[in-house]
Design a protein around this nucleic acid. Sequence first.
DNA 1: CGTTTTTGACCAGCGC
DNA 2: GCGCTGGTCAAAAACG
Length: 315
Amino acid sequence: MACSSWINTSLDLNINPRRVHEEVPVSIEKEVESKLFSLGMPKFNVEEESTSDLEEELKRVTAENKKLSEMLSVVCENYNTLRNHLMEYMRKNNEKEVSPTSKKRKSESSNNNSTCLMGTNNGNSESSSTDEESCKKPREETIKAKISRVYVRTEASDTSLIVKDGYQWRKYGQKVTRDNPCPRAYFKCSFAPSCPVKKKVQRSVDDQSVLVATYEGEHNHPQASQMEATSGSGRSVALGSVPCSASLTSSTPTPVTLDLTKSKGSNDSKSTKPKADSPKVPQVLVEQMATSLTTDPNFRAALVAAISGRLLHKN
DNA sequence: CGTTTTTGACCAGCGC
DNA sequence: GCGCTGGTCAAAAACG
């Protein structure tokens, strides 16, 4: 993913980094300074500051902190609203396209336009894409499967068809399909016995180093890795060991891809998923924002001021 | 010994 | 109806 696609979340906070508490003992002050300086923070002038100035500064930083929190809330709200709109739109679109007589394979072919590219970072971060409800064959009609497609770049020499996505999968079949010489692997979610999610993984015809993972259905449980992290007693989970490159060449101009596979359907009984199963896209967004913020000198200065202010107040 | 993977067989949808 | 194809099953093998 090109850096040019990154969202500029830089906040012009106009913080003056110079301000630091004056009444602090010199030893503590120097300690803080040296630590911050070792972190790449600018060393600031601490001379001739009055207490009132510092209190004012602290108030201002607190207010900005509050404002940032509010902005983040707004961003999250906007995201949820946008996602709901997208879901609504796609559902309406699907109702138009899928005729009552459409069958299994037609649903798959109509699914081809719901693809999206994603980048991976050593297989740990990934986002998926658009999804689409499909008309399944009779015995699967009870499952209104949501289908999404995920592209994962791996080592071209790696022949395994493992996509590390935080869930535990059991392979139940492999087939060589007509349009692709590379075999397609079929996986079922094995973390929860009742989980209906299936996954197909196949190498891309165009680029053998790209794995195409197609997900069907929605997980009715949190991610295995997250369950482990929270419970601390989960058994070892095979998440795959595919070394993925951090970048994925994409012609898609979309800067952020949405993971709607884990979106909570409004009328779905599975919507009562734990929060741990939240979409990964916000995480991507958060990472971008975090990166942007941490590289923003203004923000860093504000952070330094806030931290040092707190440290010094405690002393 | 329990779990997972492999792999050939089987089934169902689709086009002709 | 027949052949092709994708998807699933299930027994055997492999693995920890």
